[in-house]
Design a protein around this nucleic acid. Structure first.
Lengths: 210, 210
DNA sequence: GTCTATAAATTGATAGAC
DNA sequence: GTCTATCAATTTATAGAC
């Protein structure tokens, strides 16, 4: 009995649901569309996942975990703080590049938070900034970097990485005359742009210890 | 016949629709909820605005105009480039502060763009970056600022201004232990934080003309 | 496990009285 | 102009055959 890569029905449903929920949102998604996308009968959605809400919960958990994990782990290795932050930015943009619609999806669903499980998912995701905070404060004390607020810093990093993706449709129209290829090139250059900007913002100024 | 500030039915409907559409989105909004919010009968929504889509179009136009206009006008006055950019950032954050849910609303609705009028609204909004581009290139030539890409610059500014608002629910949870007051304080300090970061990024480095 | 048929609830829209 | 009553379409969910 060899295990083929052919996905079973439950997996087919979950994958189809990811696609539809993430692009259409919990309100805009239709069970029929998910069934069509999975190539199966609509009743099977309810057979495997009792309700639309339950199916959505499974998708949300998956999506959130994709953006929570391991990233802060970068701050556990032995390299210097500048390398760590640069690595973080590069990795994070890579992840978003591979899943460009997930950030907006998460923001929207957390915003409406009409389901109780959302808060729980965030807590259980292991996403926290303790390690980041500790690291920044340590380097400030050592005099390696400027005296920055670690919360401002992490929000700056996230903003610069995420916004070009979630704001793409409108930025592309207004700033790039709706040229897709040009915008793809722009996105490619963001890793360097964001790294330089952030590193520059924490680097000590000549003749200043503040 | 004195005109009282009491709004007529049409205005009541539009104001209620703004509130509901902006917070719930075009998919999540319900005509009944808009009617309740306006304190009138549901039929009247159709009497004044033929359909849900037409009513939504009115709301979207209003919302988009609120974020498009006059801001680029700052670049027409006579102050130096650093003052202009700082003014832009301060004004923009002020506007978002007064309408914190509109940016996410616009991003979402432009993203789904299932209505043709969205593209038209953007075009007719007068929002364009020509003036900004011209100004930045002029200052680079003059040697007042670094040789930056004006498109990277405007995206950086928008990202740093907008993201803390649209990402608030999740950032507040993860970074601020869900403390609302602390997050309000954080937002207040963003004007200075963003201004410093951006100005720092375009300021010429000592002993470098690049 | 998977399908067809259908129930049950929601919701945008209209008709018609006042 | 504003209301009540109702339609028509959509959509989630279930029952039951195979």
């Amino acid at each position: 009995m060899i295990k083929i890569d052919k996905e079973n029905t439950e997996e087919k449903i979950l994958n189809a649901a990811k696609k539809v929920f993430v692009t259409k949102g919990s309100d805009g998604a239709r069970m029929q569309e998910i069934a069509d996308e999975a190539g199966i009968n609509k009743s099977l959605l309810h057979y495997y996942y009792r309700s639309k809400e339950k199916l959505f919960a499974a998708v949300f958990k998956f999506a959130f975990k994709k953006f929570a994990p391991n990233l802060m782990g970068i701050f556990e290795n032995e390299s210097d703080i500048f390398t760590k932050i640069t690595s973080f930015i590069h990795s994070y943009i890579d992840i978003i590049n591979k899943n460009p619609f997930i950030p907006l999806f998460i923001i929207n669903e957390v915003s409406k938070k009409n389901a109780g499980f959302v808060g729980a998912v965030i807590k259980n995701s292991g996403m926290n900034i303790d390690l980041f905070e500790k690291e920044i404060k340590k380097e400030i004390k050592k005099g390696t970097i400027k005296q920055v607020d670690h919360r401002q810093l992490i929000v700056n990093i996230l903003a610069l990485c995420v916004f070009p993706f979630i704001g793409r449709p409108i930025i592309q129209k207004v700033v790039f005359e709706d040229n897709e290829n040009q915008y793809d090139d722009f996105l490619k250059s963001r890793k360097e742009e964001v790294s330089n900007l952030i590193i520059n913002s924490i680097t000590l100024t000549e003749g200043s210890d503040k």
